[in-house]
């Protein structure tokens, strides 16, 4: 049986760990709120751009644009969004597993795909497995601005325009609620499901100078906004997932402390009983 002092030490160290996890839980909770409000301020932009894109798609007679056309897929890009830090439960492993499995299932040779990765954990994961990384971004803010990732999104869309890759898929954790996040995979490019919005066309636009040139500006911007939206979504998920992980760590620490306290009290009582027995025994021997 562990000595009294050993148990006491374990209680103390568990207590300290608990303090840390509890603090991290509260920090993540406030970060999650901020991330959610960041995602909210992005909504008007994304809704508007979606509206204009689908309206043009619905009105256009024959829209021919390279970004709308499916072409033979020779090389696929996977855009995987992870976090820079761990301690977020299954946040990173879930999305990485999903992406890795998809890659393994679909491709035989390394020439057929490439990976664009956000977050240190994801980068290290793919590097370790010798998977080609076309582009990466690490050290993103907890509340990212669009300007921080503009270069990455623009380069990603440019890769498609230059026909370096023929398809871009996103893998990220979609934020459903503070306790539930879901790994989502989404095809960003080519843009295929534009006109399926069941809204009727509200107004016939004039296009200045013409539809084609508008699409040249609009579609890259739209595709970039999809990626940025996923990134914001993933950030909110990261904080939520870390919050949940830290809360369960705190709960576990509490349970452990309870168990150890019980053990400690038992051991203390046992030693007192033993002492009394010894004294009584000693007194009896002297009579």
């Amino acid at each position: 049986m562990a000595s009294l002092r050993d148990i006491k030490n374990r209680i103390n160290s568990t207590q300290k760990t608990k303090q840390i996890t509890n603090a991290m839980h509260m920090v993540s909770a406030s970060k999650m709120n901020k991330a959610e409000s960041g995602a909210k301020s992005f909504v008007p932009y994304s809704e508007k751009i979606q509206e204009v894109v689908s309206e043009i798609a619905a009105s256009g007679e024959d829209l021919e644009h390279p970004m709308l056309q499916e072409r033979e897929v020779k090389k696929t890009a996977y855009f995987v969004i992870t976090s820079d830090r761990g301690l977020a439960g299954a946040f990173n492993s879930n999305v990485l597993r999903a992406a890795y499995r998809t890659i393994q299932e679909r491709h035989n040779s390394k020439d057929e795909y490439t990976v664009i990765v956000a977050g240190r954990i994801g980068r290290d994961f793919f590097k370790k497995r010798n998977i080609p990384i076309a582009n990466e971004i690490v050290g993103l803010n907890d509340q990212p601005n669009f300007s921080e990732i503009k270069d990455l999104t623009a380069e990603t869309v440019q890769m498609f325009i230059d026909e370096e890759v023929d398809e871009i898929n996103l893998f990220y954790n979609h934020f459903i609620s503070a306790i539930s996040q879901e790994v989502t995979s989404k095809k960003v490019l080519p843009l295929t499901d534009l006109s399926d919005s069941n809204k009727k066309v509200t107004s016939e636009y004039e296009y200045e100078p013409n539809q084609h040139q508008i699409l040249d500006v609009l579609l890259p911007q739209y595709a970039e906004s999809l990626i940025y939206g996923a990134l914001l979504d993933s950030k909110a998920s990261e904080h939520a997932s870390r919050m949940t992980a830290m809360r369960s760590a705190t709960d576990n620490a509490n349970e452990l402390i309870d168990d150890l306290s019980l053990q400690y009290n038992r051991a203390r009582q046992a030693s007192i009983t033993q002492e009394i027995t010894e004294i009584v025994g000693g007194a009896a021997a002297q009579e």
Partner: peptide, 19 residues
């Protein structure tokens, strides 16, 4: 400034999209 020149919009303009 649109891509092909200056553009002035007054109230009541017809629906338009321009880069």
């Amino acid at each position: 400034k649109a891509e092909n020149g200056e553009l002035g919009i007054l109230p009541g303009h017809i629906p338009l999209v321009a880069p």
